[in-house]
Amino acid sequence: MKRRFRVWRGDASGGDLRDFDVEVNEGEVVLDIIHRLQATETPDLACRWNCKAGKCGSCSMEINGKPRLGCMTRMSTFEENETITITPIRTFPVIRDLVTDVSFNYEKARETPAFAPPAGVAPGEYRMQQVDVERSQEFRKCIECFLCQNTCHVIRDHDENKPAFSGPRYFIRAAELDMHPLDSLEDRKEYAQSSQGLGFCNITKCCTEVCPEHIKITDNAIIPMKERVVDRRYDPLVWLGRKIFRRDQLENMAPSSTVGVAGTSGGVPNSSVRPPENAPTGPDGHLDVSELLAPQQGGMSPFGDDMTFPMAPEQVTYHHPDPDRPAGH
């Protein structure tokens, strides 16, 4: 049976919604319809997808205006005579059709200081109790589909907030690490408020509503982080208690020295200082699609094309995980 679809087609220079009538079979999901369109009417329809099982987070799109995963939206949830509108996620720049440039998220990820084990504990010697690490584990379910980032009105409706605001995905990252029993970085609360823009969040819970992994982003990550920030910044009683008793985790919290930094400058060993790079393009500014036309054979090197191996030892930014040395030195 054929059903009516409206799919947004275009690129950064413009585009519009096009109508299609597509055959729909029982048990199919929206991503199946995209694939049928690619197989029939529009072979050049661009769409990102990988696992078709709701675990890779690639096929994020907006279906009837709602941020959803294409592979997890069953066709049986729609009325038979309903027109289904499929658009790319709005918050990020479009590349083509349903594919958007989500590099905002990767930039924010690089800015977040990584897990920092305590000094004197070598990899392989990490021991922690289940009750202590349980809260952090919920946030590890994140598949980075960026639906929460897309639906968050702080950047969806106000593009100008993008530099100051990291978004729900990185608030759960901050909460995951701040609650982690073995993380020794002390200024995550300060960092969340001053560099991630936690204060922009007005807890309207849309991130939680759209999360396909059903992570309780607002209740279990953002609000606890907000409360921890209050401890650190706004609560005079906690400040007084910290001064008097010098106890609890709070005595460790030094003022932030890691404002918006990534990699080695954030005190994180084993990470490269190489900035992110765009893929090489031809003189027309477009990507080469064919290996035959590409300047070199084979896939592009993840290290960049100007890199030769083996590298000279002084060029390598590898730090041996020496258990006797405190992290960051």
């Binding site: 950064a12 585009g15 009837n64 205006g65 509108t85 658009t87 709005r90 440039d101 500014g285 477009h286």
Partner: peptide, 26 residues
């Protein structure tokens, strides 16, 4: 063969969708 794919990060415009919201539910 040519391609119409633009450079990632090159175009910074959002998809031109006229409707303020496409939600059809209440």
């Amino acid at each position: 063969m040519t391609t119409t794919a633009t450079t990632p990060g090159g175009g910074k415009a959002r998809a031109a969708i006229a409707a303020r919201t496409l939600r059809t539910d209440r």
